[in-house]
């Protein structure tokens, strides 16, 4: 294939041989490509619209700032900071809360999910608790955690722990339950004891589901931390957005929103890359 063809193929303008010959494509989802070319067009168009819209002063910058204003704020805040913290400190504050809350959620949620998958008593005992708390949006607990531990770090971490916990419990439990009985039987027949079964069969077998849970939990945590910072915080991207909105500094608000989007997206990509690297057998058995 020539370089141009390869390029065309990568951006989705060139169909593969089979797809080209298909007479039925509507409804055949495998014939629907990623459409990267259209993604590029879409991003360019939207950026142009934003740029032109503000250049022609179609929108009041109080409602929606110009790209250059957002960019200037980006430079400004990353150099001078905003509200006692540099831009990186705000970002780090949000990320730090997520990592600690998420890690705690995994640390407690995964063993608990395993226990629930393996023991009838523990499953019965924790089932009502899990089923009760799971559907409650974590944000509903904000007032409570503020009463318990103020608006400092602890309240946010507690909230994120809560957000991640139920997801991880359920993912781990599902992972344990998904093990095929023939695998367990095979392992016992090969002389494995209970501990070895847990470590060498049940745990690796549950990893794909645990990882899926982690990705979901990561997303929920990111949303929750930003929202929590909107309500009560002294630093963080969410706090930045909230503080700026009080002064109608829309450019900072939009900058914050863009940062939230980029980080959320990057975290998901990172998790997916990690997953492909650590669990290559996912979906293959």
């Amino acid at each position: 294939m020539s370089l141009i063809q390869t390029f065309k193929y990568t951006i989705g303008l060139q169909k593969d041989g089979l797809t080209k010959r298909k007479t039925v494509t509507f409804g055949d989802t495998s014939a629907v490509g990623k459409g990267r070319f259209w993604s590029i067009i879409s991003v360019i168009t939207l950026s142009m619209a934003w740029y032109l819209g503000s250049a022609l002063e179609l929108v009041n910058p109080i409602f929606w700032p110009s790209p250059s204003a957002v960019w200037d704020q980006f430079i400004n805040i990353s150099q001078n900071g905003y509200r006692n913290f540099t831009l990186w400190e705000h970002i780090w504050a949000s990320l730090y809360r997520i990592f600690v809350g998420f890690a705690l959620g995994c640390l407690i949620g995964i063993p608990l999910g395993f226990a629930m998958g393996l023991s009838e008593i523990l499953r019965g005992w924790f089932d009502p608790i899990v089923e009760f708390f799971r559907p409650i949006p974590p944000l509903a607990f904000i007032p409570l955690v503020i009463i318990w531990s103020g608006i400092g770090e602890r309240s946010k971490i507690l909230l994120l722990f809560f957000a991640a916990l139920w997801i991880m419990v359920i993912a781990a439990r599902a992972g344990v339950s998904s093990v095929k009985l023939s695998k367990i039987h095979a392992a016992y027949s090969l002389g494995a004891n209970k501990r070895q079964i847990l470590k060498r069969v049940i745990l690796p077998n549950a990893l794909p589901e645990i990882f899926t849970g982690m990705r979901v939990a990561m997303g929920i945590c990111w949303g929750t931390v930003v929202a929590a910072e909107l309500v009560a915080a002294e630093s963080g991207v969410g706090f930045m957005i909230m503080a700026a909105s009080k002064f109608l500094a829309t450019d900072i608000v939009v900058l914050g929103v863009i940062i939230v989007g980029i980080i959320g997206y990057s975290m998901d990509i990172l998790m997916r890359k990690l997953e492909a690297k650590l669990i290559p057998w996912k979906g293959k058995a």
């Binding site: 095929k180 023939s182 695998k183 039987h185 095979a186 392992a187 027949s189 090969l190 060498r200 069969v201 690796p204 077998n205 990893l207 669990i279 057998w281 293959k284 058995a285």
Partner: peptide
Amino acid sequence: RGMVFQQGALFEW
């Protein structure tokens, strides 16, 4: 006493 199952009893990890 070793067992051989129909399929899917290998450890894919």
